[in-house]
Each structure stands twice: as C-alpha cells, then as structure tokens.
C-alpha cells in the first residue's frame, strides 16, 4: 500500500496544484517522483509531528490540500490535539495518512503498533475515518479524500497486501464495498486483515456457511443502510480489524446496534486491552490475538452453534 500511496498522491498532485505533501522524515526515496512533479510542494517536516499537523492546517486554511504522512502512531496519537484543534475544529481539508497500521510493524514493538488510532480519531467532529483493504481501494480512498471539504484519516498497511480489487473501485465514503456476496454470515473487515477475512470466508463456505465479505473501508461515517439490511439478512455479523477491541470498527457497529436495537448478533475480532511485550512478527502477533483465517472461521462456527 505504501508504494501505491506514493504513486497515487503523485498522480493527484500532477492533476491538482493544491495538493501538497508533508512527511515526518520517512519515505526515503518514496517521494522522488512526487518531487519531480513539483519539488516546492513536498515538505519534509522532520521528526516534529505536532508542528507538521499545525502547518498542514495552516496550508488548508490558505486553500491548499495537504496530505500528511508518517508512521501511524506519530501521525495520530502523537499529535492528537493538533488534529483535534487545527484540522477538525477549523474543519479544513487535511488528509492524514498513517502507514504501517495495526500490527504491520509488529517487530518494532508497541511504540510502533497502532491499535488505538481508529478509536480516537473517530471521536473528532467532522473527521472521516477510512481503512482501505488493498492498494487499489487505497487509491480510491485518496481520490475521495481529496474531494472532501473536511479532514480525513486514512489508515494504511505497509507493503505486500494481497490484491482484492484488480482495478481502482468506485468508492463512496460512508458506503461499504461488497467483496464477496453471501447469505448466512457477514464478515465486515476494515483494512489490513482482508486477506485473512477472505480465507476465513472460503473455509466457512466449504463448511456450508454462506459468507458475505465486506470491505468496511469507512469506519466513520458508517454505512448504516448496509448494516440495517445486514441485520435482517444474516444470522451473524463479525467485525474484523487489526486494531484494539475498544473503540474501532467493532465498537462503532456495536454502538449502532445499541442505538437502533438491531436484532443481529455480532462477533468482534481485534486485539485485546494489552501491549504486546514479546518480540514477534506480524504473523506471530495475528496468531497470538486470534486474527488468522482459521481462528476467525472457528470462532464463527462456534458462535453459530451457541
């Protein structure tokens, strides 16, 4: 996704003179092509994210469309108050992109994990919160984000995500994308666990459980029309995210179910309320937290029995 992001923002910058890139001293060589489009529209803001976010808001207040990019914890939790006051309170079109989200940087330890970003950014008035599942959906999110009048957060992985969309899909912020239709169970995935989700669906279908797979790329605004229909169509819905169980997609769907008293069960897959203190790869961390295809398929089967 990282390379697709760099490529897409370069294309968007070549089409729109308002697009400007701010990086927090990462992406060595990643933005060389962007700089070829217009070097004056690329700023390495250094390891100083609070200032970077304020600068972005100032640019947006002046009519530009800044895209702020660094590793997820540093472009979200590190500078949350700047996002809140400078971007959201002023309601300006700042696009915040966090790379290496969830457990993408598992081996770098909890300082580089991002399992809270969806939760905290979702609380901010006027903020759209997006989690594309592959490179092409990311490109669609970028195009949609830069057409918004307010702030948008896009949570992306690192590299090597499986291809889900063969071309850039039509995408509307706040509307789900149905990746694979089904009729018994719906797996609602936000972001980087889509390959595991699709494999879980394959395993469930093999056991005679017709499974719909949905890319819930918009955590906010939530597609409540889809959810309302899903509540009557499915025996069970499961939310899937490489994010803590507190505050992310699972919580957003649970809040909706509570608000409308929706008659559907929900399973929530995500990480528990803890820091991972041992060393581990992304695959190790996903296994530890039950976020593999096999773990999720088994949990769905057990829930349907219960």
């Amino acid at each position: 996704m990282r390379n697709a992001f760099a490529d897409e923002v370069t294309k968007l910058a070549s089409q729109d003179a308002r697009v400007i890139m701010l990086s927090g001293d990462i992406g060595n060589k990643l933005f060389d092509n962007f700089k070829k489009v217009d070097e004056r529209r690329f700023y390495n803001c250094g390891v100083a994210e609070a200032n970077m976010m304020g600068v972005a808001a100032g640019m947006a207040l002046s009519g530009l469309r800044p895209v702020v990019y660094t590793i997820t914890p540093f472009t979200t939790t590190r500078c949350f108050e700047q996002i809140r006051v400078d971007a959201c309170y002023h309601h300006v079109p700042v696009t915040i992109v966090g790379t290496g989200s969830g457990l993408s940087y598992a081996e770098l330890g909890p300082t580089h994990h991002s399992l809270e970003d969806l939760a905290i950014l979702r609380t901010l008035p006027g903020m759209s919160v997006l989690a594309p599942c592959d490179a092409n959906e990311l490109r669609a999110c970028m195009r949609a984000a830069l057409k918004q009048d307010g702030p948008v957060y896009i949570r992306i992985g690192k590299k090597g995500e499986a291809v889900v969309f063969n071309e850039v899909p039509a995408l509307t912020i706040g509307k789900v994308a149905i990746v694979r239709p089904g009729s018994d169970v719906a797996l609602l995935c936000a972001g980087t666990l889509m390959a595991e989700t699709l494999e879980a669906a394959t395993q469930l279908n093999a056991q005679g459980i017709s499974t719909e797979v949905v890319s819930m790329h918009s955590i906010k605004p939530l597609d409540v029309d889809y959810l309302a229909a899903a509540a009557t169509r499915f025996k069970l819905i499961a939310t899937i995210e490489e994010h803590g169980l507190i505050g992310g997609l699972g919580s957003a769907v649970a809040e909706w179910r509570s608000r409308v008293n929706a008659p559907v069960r929900q399973l929530a897959f995500g990480t528990p309320d803890e820091f991972m203190h041992e060393v581990g790869s992304q695959e190790y961390a996903r296994r530890k937290y039950g976020l593999t295809a096999g773990d999720m398929a088994t949990a769905v089967v057990n829930a349907l029995k219960g």
């Binding site: 304020g54 600068v55 808001a57 100032g58 640019m59």
Partner: peptide
C-alpha cells in the same frame, strides 16, 4: 505552526 503553514502556502 498554523501561521507557518500559511506562510509556506
């Protein structure tokens, strides 16, 4: 920071 963003704009 906001003012710096305006100046860079």
């Amino acid at each position: 920071p906001i003012g710096l963003g305006m100046a860079l704009a």
